[in-house]
Design a protein around this nucleic acid. Structure first.
Lengths: 206, 206
DNA sequence: CAAATAATGTACCGATCGGTATCTATATAA
DNA sequence: TTATATAGATACCGATCGGTACATTATTTG
């Protein structure tokens, strides 16, 4: 494992030759390859090229392709899609939905990153040997859907949502809309088109 | 190209050795492999195995992997997803949407076929050399979205839909919902959960 | 029958796949 | 300086990728 500086205390440098690359920068490059190519479509050759590191150094620092993908997903969660967790902290249920979907519309069509969400539409149909990656992505999808549901359950206790609202279905509906928007973005839909979809949804808020 | 019997007139058999397999049956097997594995994830080895044909016979009868995929897509359109074109012929716009989405909920979670729609969520993120397949799938997605839009435009001329309805957005919204449901189905959602989503949408019909 | 034609089966092609053995270079510790 | 530890670079591994050459087999034509 490579050396990682502690944030709080000054640490002695490790004994061997120091790394010539920055761990987080390299992971960011890997993330962009996986994001645009998918897990299967990203070859180690392309990853190596993009990360600017020799292949044995990748394996030493990040593990195999599957582990590298997991670590890239972690960085994806903490970076590009951190807005999802933030949206949950909006004061009302409707504002949570509005923030989540509006930010998604912008994010999914951002011109400086690949179109579509890695988690929403990654590894849906895959070849043999991708089961772990598929399950990991399914768990992440469940994760934000559950976060929405719990937030809506909270809203019900605050009389922010009517008692007859089915939070399970509402959360799944919003997750479904987000996943569909991800397909639309990857298929060429514009930011304005996705915003129009979000507004149509919000105009019928329960 | 292999021999294909004419439907109307009795045709003389061709000169060489006759095919040992049925063209449409073999294509159906190929379709199921592409459907569950995706274009990239389906290897020629797995296709060969499933189709029960030697590899040179596949190439002779169907062309290369890309052409085989296109032909399988054609069979998919004429078979499993023929319900989409049928839904367009429902008498009212709301019934079109209801039929399309309800049938989709059943179709996407059908236990005898792979989960999710090949067209809706196929080849979203892919490696190099898949551009043609990606574009073909995008065109199919546009196809059913356009069919919905035109059907809703017709509904407006019949005073079946209010004049202030944006048919472009409504069609894209329904397509987006369908694509999201495809992700949900591939991620393990049940038929009842998808039906609940469809009903929530229909309860807010414009 | 033989000639012609077309599909099958085997065996193989070069390219690329993910992953690694090994040697060298650069650092710290004693 | 010498020993130790870790990273970089090269070159390679067996497996699999999509695709095909070629000989064989089965059929129709003459």
């Amino acid at each position: 494992m490579k050396f990682m500086a502690m944030s709080t205390s000054q640490t002695k440098r490790p004994r061997g030759r120091p790394s010539a690359f920055d761990y987080e920068e390299a992971l960011e490059k890997a993330l962009l390859v996986f994001w645009s190519r998918g897990y299967e479509g990203a070859s180690m050759a392309e990853l190596t090229e993009a990360m600017g590191i020799n292949r044995p150094s990748i394996y030493a620092a990040f593990g195999n392709k599957e582990e590298l993908f997991s670590k890239a997903l972690g960085r994806y969660m903490a970076g590009p899609v951190a807005y999802v967790a933030e949206a949950m902290r909006e004061p009302t249920a409707k504002q949570v939905a509005e923030k989540f979907l509006t930010q998604s519309a912008l994010f999914l069509t951002n011109e400086s990153t690949p179109r579509g969400c890695m988690i929403a539409v990654g590894a849906l149909f895959s070849g043999e040997g991708c089961e772990r990656v598929q399950q990991e992505l399914i768990a992440y999808r469940q994760g934000y859907e559950n976060a929405l549901r719990k937030r809506f359950e909270l809203a019900k206790t605050q009389n922010d949502l009517k008692q007859d609202v089915n939070t399970h279905t509402l959360a799944k509906y919003i997750a479904t809309l987000h996943q569909g928007m991800s397909v639309q973005a990857a298929s060429g839909a514009t930011k304005d088109e996705l915003i129009a979809i979000v507004q149509l949804f919000l105009s019928n808020w329960p």
